[in-house]
């Protein structure tokens, strides 16, 4: 009981004051990106340059998502570390409940966390467990601890962020991606656009095929 209390308090302090991105946080989001949008013909992309881009996208978004007033001052609450921990804890719960379909790589888990050690489909199973609140919420870190609303608010956007990060222009920003939004410049043709045959923005197209006659009766 007392142990739980101290764990919760520790988690709260870490959430409020931990500003640095933890090593396992990057590993979790690289693994998530690999599960959602793997590089074609490359079933294991974790650790690739593209996954580093994708992880940066997740981390920036989650760390700038929530701003609240605390002691008369607006403060931004970084969610990336806590969300990564939530995914690792939920991954552990998936394994403990025997719901993973593929064995986890335990050697990989010790360095990169349990989520990244799962097979890509089992990582989606972890998201699914969280989306349906089929995890022990008391085992999650602050601000997700016993807080289904916060869990859903974050988990519901994770898959979307993965695809938006990959198929938008984000991967074309190169090193400028880590700068403020106004400083980002397209330095290369985005990988996602290339994969899907999107030529990039144009000023217009000669695509007109007429108009259905619009003679209104009134």
């Amino acid at each position: 009981m007392l142990g739980n209390f101290f764990t919760a308090v520790g988690s709260l302090f870490q959430f409020l004051f931990q500003r640095k991105v933890l090593p396992q946080t990057a590993a979790v989001f690289e693994a998530l990106a690999e599960s959602i949008t793997p590089l074609p013909g490359n079933p294991v992309s974790a650790g690739s340059e593209r996954d580093k881009y994708a992880a940066a996208y997740y981390i920036y978004t989650l760390d700038h998502y929530v701003s609240l007033k605390v002691c008369f001052k607006p403060s931004t609450f970084g969610l990336a570390n806590a969300a990564a921990k939530m995914l690792n804890m939920a991954a552990k719960q998936l394994i403990d409940s025997g719901k993973n379909e593929h064995p986890a790589d335990s050697a990989f888990a010790s360095a990169h966390g349990m989520f990244a050690a799962l097979h890509t489909k089992d990582r989606c199973r972890v998201i699914s467990l969280l989306e349906h609140l089929q995890v022990d919420l008391a085992g999650l870190p602050v601000p997700f601890y016993k807080n289904p609303g916060t869990v859903l608010a974050v988990v519901s956007i994770l898959t979307m962020l993965g695809s938006a990060g990959h198929y938008s222009e984000w991967t074309g920003y190169g090193a400028t991606r880590s700068g403020p939004p106004a400083a980002r410049k397209l330095v290369q043709f985005p990988a996602g656009w290339q994969q899907v045959g999107y030529p990039g923005p144009a000023k217009g197209y000669h695509g007109l095929r007429g108009c259905l006659r619009d003679k209104f009766s009134e």
């Binding site: 199973r125 998201i127 979307m160 695809s163 938006a164």
Partner: peptide
């Protein structure tokens, strides 16, 4: 739509995965 928004609308807004 352009591909990032297109992928988001078509493939990411459910609360369950097709493969499950």
């Amino acid at each position: 739509l352009s591909p990032g928004l297109f992928a988001s609308f078509l493939y990411t807004l459910s609360d369950s995965y097709d493969f499950l």
